[in-house]
Design a binder for these strands. Structure first.
Lengths: 232, 232
DNA sequence: CCCTTATTCGAACGAATGCATAAAATATAC
DNA sequence: GTATATTTTATGCATTCGTTCGAATAAGGG
């Protein structure tokens, strides 16, 4: 036992990052002061400047680290589904992408913090965020978009991108605003339950992704209304 | 000519609300000061206290007004689709719900501000937001959930709620984080174009909503994986 | 032991915040 | 014209913000 980050023996730097992640996810970037974070971590607030150069640096560090974990988990799951050179099914690709997002509770106790932080920053601090996203996520996204495209050869690249965008929306909203559906359903739909969420989300997404292409370039895409009308 | 809110003849109150909507949507609640808003509106900052009782009151006023407009637009579209006692199709219900969200640019020039504001508040000021949402939206949501359920009798109520939740995610994320897909597609997918977004979103959602039920109670739900695997 | 380096701490800074108040300006009524 | 009510402006206040600085403490090598 080398007492790395086992339990009690955290360095001040680690304490700060942990508290920052927690508080940023809970109250947003502008909603939390450096003093709040340092207080929650039980260290002096000047350490934020010492270790991270300032509040923004602390945020960037937290975000980058979290992104790395998430990205690795996703890549590993995708690799498992691709074992033996097999091409993963659409369901499997979606599962590999979604599962780590819903269960990002493993390391420490960080509630589903990354998507939460991410969606907060999208609004509050968009300039900094865009840089962080580009640095940490674009590459990972491209891998999954490619995997999705391989499952869906009948779609244009743009179709896949659009639907990937919608997929992101469902994930982020599930992390950000779970209260509304919980209230509407009187507690019976609980987006904070990863298993239940996945059970509902995957079939929804599979069907959405396999819908006929909507690209304009697709001259003959039969539409009219497709099967839009449901027998009622 | 009563010079209500025609064009140039805005009252200071209106100017404040307009600027507040704009700035809140752009930088978040904590990210904007009362002075910023008043400055942008070209009026004195004390008017915020005079007219709205403070910053929170201003936000509540903006949010409530915007919600009312959105709710009315949605209701009107749904009524149009229900003309003559006919039951609207799934596509039509979705269209009635989505279109006003994507095009909330009409009044003034407010970019798609409401979903943006909404998603910001979800993180920043959740206590105030939850009250506002409950006051302004729950009733409207129930109407659409009911309309959706009528289109999808084979689904359980919980299924419909879950999918409605996913639908909200796609809308909010489209309003909040359009940059990522725009960058990934090198500008060819533009979520700020309502028509293009709808053309992609509606087929995706129709397919997702008509997917077989995923409810656990539904013992016999037909196929194990549906058409999840695509011919490749 | 001393000396160097890395950390931690308390205090303070200027700037910006939300809010309240009083005076000035304008409109309205008589 | 005068008095009253409404709207706008200007200013001040107490607080909090992120950051910086110098001193105090801990750690380690010679």
């Amino acid at each position: 036992m080398k007492s790395e980050a086992n339990q009690v023996d955290q360095t001040s730097r680690e304490k700060l990052m942990k508290s920052a992640e927690h508080l940023f996810a809970e109250r947003g970037y502008d909603g939390v002061s450096v003093r709040d974070i340092a207080n929650d971590a039980g260290v002096n607030s000047a350490l934020v400047g010492y270790y991270f150069g300032g509040k923004e640096g602390l945020l960037a560090e937290v975000y980058t680290q979290r992104c790395g974990l998430l990205r690795d988990e996703r890549a590993q799951l995708l690799a498992e589904y691709s074992a033996g050179g097999k091409t993963p099914s659409l369901e499997e690709v979606l599962d590999a992408f979604i599962t780590p997002s819903l269960e990002s509770a493993r390391n420490g106790e960080g509630r589903r913090s990354l998507p939460h932080i991410r969606s907060i920053l999208a609004a509050e601090n968009s300039s900094l965020l865009e840089k962080l996203v580009a640095e940490n996520f674009d590459e990972s996204s491209k891998i999954f978009v490619k995997a999705l495209g391989k499952c869906l050869p009948q779609l244009t690249h743009e179709d896949v991108l659009w639907r990937f965008h919608f997929l992101l929306g469902t994930i982020y909203y599930t992390a950000t605003g779970p209260h509304r559906i919980k209230a509407l359903s009187r507690g019976r739909c609980d987006p904070s339950d990863p298993a239940a969420t996945k059970e509902e989300l995957i079939p929804f997404l599979v069907a959405g992704f396999t819908a006929p292409s909507a690209a304009k370039g697709n001259k003959r895409r039969g539409r009219g209304r497709g099967n839009g009308t449901v027998k009622s």
